[in-house]
Design a protein around this nucleic acid. Structure first.
Lengths: 248, 248
DNA sequence: TATATTATTGCACAAAACCGCAAAAACACG
DNA sequence: CGTGTTTTTGCGGTTTTGTGCAATAATATA
């Protein structure tokens, strides 16, 4: 393999995953560590990536994308990490959109083998960075506000799916009222998502607990897992743990 | 064997495999290394390929995966600006993916009223910033490499659409061979996109001109507009302007 | 802090590129 | 046809580049 080809390959990996490990490249390209290191050094000299201990990082990832502006990011990372435990190799997972879900995707293990259906383009792009994950983006009208696809076409397609697990964020959850929402379209969509999967998990930060909005999505019993940043035994979660709903 | 024959042979190898090794050519053509090197140098001077240590690479190969270094960004902005002239209020537009198309979206007038179908999540997200634009994302399998949806499901949905204009990038275009590609799935997809719209425009930087790859998408006559960063009267475009293809 | 992983450095060897030159072939033209 | 000119090609020697190895230093991780 020519040097230039290796460089292109490395840059493709970087663009795909935002990062790359030296050891992985050694295996994939079947050359010595030294060669990889020199390649990385040259790419650094060309200003095409960042080199760090153990590999290299995408430049754009660090400069352009500012994750820190995401509201309550720390909490969301905790939630995301907990939620990854629900995912096993070979599963078919359906996900919604939103920053929490996005964070969840970023926390998935590199080696995960699974199939993901999603209504969020951003989630799809993030999922695509995993080599062994198949991503199916459910198409339809694209919502400017929530950055997800919605509408009849989406619901129709959801009706043809049966996933093992559905992961969604929520704007409100209450022990008595269950999952609620304000937007009619989103409401319909969530119902369809729940119907399209055997089990379901709700990811939400604690401040969305004990809130009920106008439109009901489903009763609390229909949810199998509730993932928050709080400790399992926290006071705030007491009213939820009574049900056959597992708290993570 | 005459020099011209060797050159043709080399270019055929390049178009076929995207790469060629000096040592292979020495064997295949049964001439000295120096001769091959000189041949390659001449082809470089003609701008027909890239020379690297150990051999040469196709030009399209380098740009087939647009890296985050916003390769040839200036050119793409020029192209994008030209292409926006094709869009009128009320139109239904179908777009592909890629950085050129993305740049095109960014150059659209703020007030535009239109409907966009797209197979690119990133394009969808960008389009969503326009208040008066309706965005429909066509869903399906999500390609890790090209960041677009593809596969049978996408093609099926495309068959139900009739847009006014289809905008796509390309990896190669040639006056005789027409639009060509290397990937079977992408090839099918592009055919479906062209079939789904009344008119079509190809956006590409000049270095993708006069390149023919293995799989044929469509003859040059099926394209209505060709948008490059070059001036309308440029030499390189001469062979294209003969057809009923409008150069922008 | 101890231990394992990763980086760095200098070195050696092979492959490829480069340079100048001369033989061979192709061409031009009286 | 013959002769001078140009182009093309191959050869030998030198220089540059690419790669891997081994010893040592730096850095992570528990």
């Amino acid at each position: 393999m020519l040097k230039k080809e290796r460089h292109d390959f490395i840059m493709r990996q970087i663009n795909l995953h935002n990062r790359v490990l030296t050891s992985d490249l050694v295996q994939l390209l079947n050359v010595s560590e030294d060669t990889i290191r020199r390649d990385l050094q040259e790419l650094v000299d060309q200003g095409r990536l960042f080199k760090v201990h153990g590999g290299a990082l995408s430049k754009s990832y660090h400069s352009s994308f500012d994750d820190s502006t995401v509201y309550a990011r720390d909490s969301k990372i905790i939630i995301a990490k907990k939620a990854t435990k629900l995912i096993k190799d070979g599963m078919v997972v359906l996900t919604g959109g939103g920053t929490t879900i996005l964070e969840f995707v970023k926390q998935l293990p590199e080696s995960l083998q699974a199939t993901f259906f999603t209504i969020s383009p951003l989630v799809a792009v993030e999922l695509a960075k995993y080599n062994n994950v198949e991503v199916i983006l459910i198409g339809g009208l694209f919502s400017k506000n929530s950055q997800i696809t919605y509408g009849g076409h989406v619901i129709m397609q959801l009706s043809e799916i049966k996933a093992d697990l559905c992961l969604m964020g929520t704007s409100a959850i209450d022990a008595i009222e269950g999952l609620t929402d304000t937007d009619w379209e989103i409401n319909q969509l969530k119902k369809a998502m729940l119907a399209a999967s055997k089990k379901s998990a709700v990811l939400c930060i604690s401040e969305k607990l004990d809130i009920a909005l106008r439109l009901k999505v489903c009763p609390i019993e229909h949810i199998n897992y509730l993932v928050t940043e709080l400790d399992k035994g926290d006071q705030l979660l007491k009213s939820y743990s009574l049900k056959e709903l597992q708290i993570l």
